[in-house]
Structures are given as C-alpha cells and as structure tokens.
Design a protein around this nucleic acid. Sequence first.
DNA 1: AATGAATGAGAGTTCATTCAT
DNA 2: TATGAATGAACTCTCATTCAT
Lengths: 204, 204, 204, 204
Amino acid sequence: MTDRTPRTARGTRTRAKLLEAAEEVFSAHGYHDASIVKITEAGGVSQGTFYLYFEGKQEIFDELVEDLNRRVRRAMAEASHSGTDRAEAERLGFAAFFRFTAEHPALYRIIRQAEFVSPRALHQHYERITEGYAAGLQQALDDGEIVPLDPTVAAWALTGIGEMIGMRWVLWGENDKVPDDVFDEMIALVHRALGLTTGSREAT
Amino acid sequence: MTDRTPRTARGTRTRAKLLEAAEEVFSAHGYHDASIVKITEAGGVSQGTFYLYFEGKQEIFDELVEDLNRRVRRAMAEASHSGTDRAEAERLGFAAFFRFTAEHPALYRIIRQAEFVSPRALHQHYERITEGYAAGLQQALDDGEIVPLDPTVAAWALTGIGEMIGMRWVLWGENDKVPDDVFDEMIALVHRALGLTTGSREAT
Amino acid sequence: MTDRTPRTARGTRTRAKLLEAAEEVFSAHGYHDASIVKITEAGGVSQGTFYLYFEGKQEIFDELVEDLNRRVRRAMAEASHSGTDRAEAERLGFAAFFRFTAEHPALYRIIRQAEFVSPRALHQHYERITEGYAAGLQQALDDGEIVPLDPTVAAWALTGIGEMIGMRWVLWGENDKVPDDVFDEMIALVHRALGLTTGSREAT
Amino acid sequence: MTDRTPRTARGTRTRAKLLEAAEEVFSAHGYHDASIVKITEAGGVSQGTFYLYFEGKQEIFDELVEDLNRRVRRAMAEASHSGTDRAEAERLGFAAFFRFTAEHPALYRIIRQAEFVSPRALHQHYERITEGYAAGLQQALDDGEIVPLDPTVAAWALTGIGEMIGMRWVLWGENDKVPDDVFDEMIALVHRALGLTTGSREAT
DNA sequence: AATGAATGAGAGTTCATTCAT
DNA sequence: TATGAATGAACTCTCATTCAT
C-alpha cells in the first residue's frame, strides 16, 4: 500500500545497491536460500531498510527478472540488428546471448526458479524474448531470406536451442563461453533449420 | 548412515506411497514449499515414518528426479526405435516426449527446481537424455541419413527445442498437448536442421 | 486447517500447561507484550511446540477468555443459587464474583484487552454474564420479590456495579478483597435498586 | 529531556494536528496497532516531526487520555449542574455521558487499553470521574435529598452502571444512542438506588 | 520547523529433523 | 513398523526511534 519510491538521492542509491545485491545473492543461493538478511548484508544496509524500498522478497525478485529481461533483449536486439543479412543476424544474436549469459549467470539461475516463485514473471520473460525473435524472423520471411515457416513456432524452438547450449557450455562449461567449434556447429544447425546457407565464419 | 531399505512387504509399500506422494507434492508446490508434513499427509503416514525410508528431503527429491528421468528416456527410446527411418524416429520421439510431459508435468516442474536443490541431479538428467539422443544421431550419421554434424551439439540443441515447445504448448497451453500444426511446424524445422526431408504427415 | 488436538496423554498435558502459562503471562504483561516465547518459557516447552496445539496467539487468547468466562459464571451461579431469597442471592453472587476476581485477576486484565484483540470474545463474555443474571432477575420478578423492572437493563447495570467496585477495591485495593463496609454499602445500594429490603448483615 | 514545546504558531498547529490524528488512530486500531507512521500519516506530517512534539508513543497516549477525561467531566458537570433537583441532575448527567460517548467512542476504546499501557492514566481517569460524582452525592446527602449512603462507594457503583449501559447500547448498539426506554429504566433504577422518587419523564 | 532514510531488536511463525513410545 | 510430540534454528516482516540534511 505504502509508496516505497525513494524521495532523495541517497534513497535512490540505497535502492540500487539492494537490487544489485539481490542479483548476486539470488544467483548464488537461489530464491529460497536467499534471505533478506543475506541481501541486506551484501548491500551493506540493515534489514529494516530493505522494506523501505521493497514490499518483500517476491517483489524484488520480480523486479530483478524484469530488469534482466530488458537487458538481455536489448543486448540481443542491438547485436542482431548490426548484421547485414539474416545469417549474420542469427550468428550475432546468439553470440550476444551467450556473452550476456556469461556475464550474468544470474539470468538463468533466477529464471529457473521463477516457476513457483512468480509464474507470471516467467511467462512474460519468454513471451517477450520470443516475440522479439519472431518479429525478426517475420521480417526475414517478408524479405524472402528464409524458408516459409511459422515465425512464432520457430522463435520458441530456436530460443530453446540457445537456452540449452548456453546452459551446457556457458554455465556448466569451464571457460565461461561456448567454444568456437560448438558455436559454429550450432549456428550451422540453426541456419539449416531456417533454410539459410551458412557463409564463411568470422569470430564469435 | 542407518540402512533405510524396507525389510517387509508393508515397508516396501509405505516407501512407494511416499515416493508417489512426493511427486505430487513437489509438482504442486515446488521443492521449498513441499514440506515433509505435506508429503507424509499425502502419503497417509506420520512424519516420523518418512525418516524410516529416506535420509531427508533432498534424498527423496534426487530419487524422484532419477525415477522420472528413467521413465521419460524409456518412453522416448521406445517410440523412436519403432520408427522406420530417421525422420520418423524424430517425429515419434518428440511426440513421446510431449505425451510424457502432458502426463507428468512434474518432470518439468521438478527439474526446474533442481538447479539449486541438487545440481548434480540436474546435470545428470540432461546428460543422460542428450547421450541417448546423440547415440541415435550418430547411428543416422553412420547410415548417411543426415547431414554431417556433431551429434552431441545437435542433441543438446534439439533437446532445447523440445523443452521450449513443450513448456509453451503443453505446460502453458490449454489442451495439454502440442497442437498438430505447431507440432508439424516444429518437426519440419527439426528435419531441416538435420538435413532430412520431411515426408507426409500422420497424426501425433 | 490442521487438526491440533493432542492425540496422547502427554500432548494433552502439554496443551494444558500452555493454557495455564498463557493465563499467567497475558495477565502479567497484557496481550501485546505477551510473546509466544514468554508463554512457552513459562510453560517449559519450546517455541515450536506451541504451534502444535494452537493456531496462534489470538486463538489461545480466545480460548482463555472463554475458559475464564465459563468459570466465573459457574462460580456466581453456584453461589447465588445457594441463597434462600433474592436479597441473599444478590449478596452471595457478588461475593463470589469478587472472590473469583481476587483469585483470577487475569479475568479483568484479559477482558479489557479484548476490545481490539477479539471483539467477538468480549461481546460474548458480557452477553453471557448478563443473560444469566437477567434470568435470575426474571425469576425474582415472577416471584414478586423485586420491584417491576426490565431484567435485561437491570442485569447490565448491576454487572457494571460489580465490575467497577471489583476493579477499584479488589484489583487496585491493598487487601485483594472488597472491605466489608464497602461491600455492605454496595449491597444495600443494589437492594434498593431492586426494591429489596436489606436484612441483617452476615460476613462476605 | 529536550523541551518539546512548540515555539511558533506553525508548531502549535502541527502539535494539535498530531493529537487529533492520534485520537482517531488509537480509537480505530488500538494502542498497539496504532503505529507512529499511521499517526503521522493521518496528521499529514513526516515521522520525524512527531518526535519534535512528543517524547514517544506512550506520552501522546497519556496526554490524550487526560484530554478526553477533562472533556467528559466538563460535559457531565455542566449537564448535571443545570438540574433543579438531584433526580434531574442524575438524569442529565447520565444523558451527557452517553452523548459524549456517542461523539467520542475513542473514550471507551482508549481507556480500555490503558490497563497495561499506562495504568496510572487509567486510575486517574476513574478517580477523577468518581470524585466529581461523589462530591455531587455528598451535596445531595447534606441537603437530605438522598438516602444515607457512602458517597464514594455509590459514585463508583453508579459510574459502573453508566459504563456498562454505554458500552452495550451506545458502542455496540445500532443507533449510537441509548434508546429512551432503556434510558428510563436505568434512571429509575439509579433513582431507587439513591432513594429518590423518579418524577415524570422528559426526553433524554 | 520539517523531512525521510536508516536502524536493529524483536515479533509471530514454519519446518526439517530427532526421539521416546 | 509406525507414531506424533518435541525441538530450535531460521525466516520474513514491523516499528519505535534516531539522525543527517
């Protein structure tokens, strides 16, 4: 009920510290073992302060999901738009996704938890990602770049590819990045799936 | 350290009841909100009895994951082996996976949680699934049925497709099954990714 | 939701210990400063045990009010029924009330709090007391012992007299009892109010 | 220890706003659920401002009790003094009390809480009320208007009548006032208790 | 005079687990 | 084999109060 918007610069700073701390803590311990104490300690403020800016644990979680979602989508959009054709757009988009994953493992780790914590946030996350992806595919379709297909189905399917490869090689891998050969293999597969011809290979 | 193997037929029954109850409860409430009380109540036994057969909450969770993993792999293997060529094998395998998902939503819901609860169990789950998948692809490769590719990378990628489409249309959908047109679209995409030619379409 | 009825003799004993402890603690500290810790410490059990038998603080409070209500009414009823005429019944009833108050100061102290804690319990308490009282007056009326009056209004009014005199002389007094002269003065007033003639004075 | 007296007209206004807000909030939520935030919000000032004028929660509570006490006594005194005889004085005094109760339900609700919050304030409240009442009775006694009795005991007893009837019919009733017939019944009872003859009945 | 950010103790409550019966 | 009473640590959240601005 109460308005929890900070009213001073100091407050704004504190709120931001808490969000950052929450990303760390949720990512390290998972939602349930991420206690408010841990978050406030990581943020360097007292327990009570937390409730000055957030309604509770769930609320900060939701906000975090939304935040990460916005950032990953922006990263992917920017990358893929800088491609000159669809084949390159795909390559750059996936590369951006993996880079983001490496820098923000919290994304995966937090999203996974959302199933029970905040189903709405989970749906929205994938909905938004696939929507953006589908729009790009539709464009490629209109331009006759790819084989006729349902862009929505394709978007969900290809998102799944990213998720799985990212989990296996970025999250569980040893180098925090998808090895080049794996990446190339995957891109080739994606290109075939869309009916594109994979050109010569540049760096990831 | 105590041996928790049931010594009597009655004990075996009780243990089985608890496992079944756990699947229900974990699936409905998630790991953390699935209290031992809820599980024992659902199983119709008292709290203390639980510890006669399981070391703790985590142990029963792991066992459940393993159990579901075994079952889903068997379902997929049986289905895909009954196909006459690789194209059909893919179609049947995915169909089996979606059917299993519809019947056991617990699979998804429980696996998702495993990230923090039992990372080992999570790794193992996907490792085993993709191993089986990769073996099939290797075979197809040897038979010259599919385009040259790294079967492991392809297995993880295609597993991702299944996961995502299943989540979107089975779990979140309204009919507990992937609609035929979506399924066909997805299969076509998979076939292209493998360099297969999609044949005529039968029912899912 | 859960059934919190004790299932063994030990449980029944523990529950009783908690109720007794609660009477003490609520009476000594008031509802809000009576923490569950204080109650369980006074009862010699751990915090968690409390929730085995009570839903929460409010529930044990309500139960206590009801319990005290039953006991004070029984004490008054027994006393006043042993009187041979209405004048004596009044004298004995009030005496019993003051005696109970002296032995259970918790009655007052707890009831007072109920206004915000459990308004329902408060209403019920006075409703029941005055109902019993009014029934006695109705009888006296039928027997022509008292002046014509509305028994309900009289019952509430006379209950008020008891409350106030009890508060002033039992609770705040120094001897834990209403001094004889005060008691006699009050009874004389009550008798006049009912149109009874006060007879010779015996001890309280 | 700091001096909290307002030094400017603005300060005086703020202090008054807070007192008024406190009456509302204490009355609506009870002492313990009446947080300083609620009071300051109701008063339209910030949390910190509260401590400019009051030492703490308890202090503002005490001041409120004293304030209400002063006002209810004035109302009753004025009313009863305008009566021409004792019978009328009683009638008018009680009527004034009920009117005040209807307009300031906070009186009851706040006093009830005082038992543990501020026992001193509670004692003082009733002490003052009954003192005034007793003085009036003494006068009537000297004038031979009422039967011989101890004015102090009678004052406490009759105050109890007012409290109880007020609670039952003003606070819990539906019309915010004591119905005429109840009022007349009660007054008749009071008159008998004092040995007065009830005259003809006017409105309350 | 007024603000609102910050504190931290303490509240009620849950729950995995142990143990006497 | 099975029970359920008991534990106690940990959790989320509230709130009177202080203090820098």
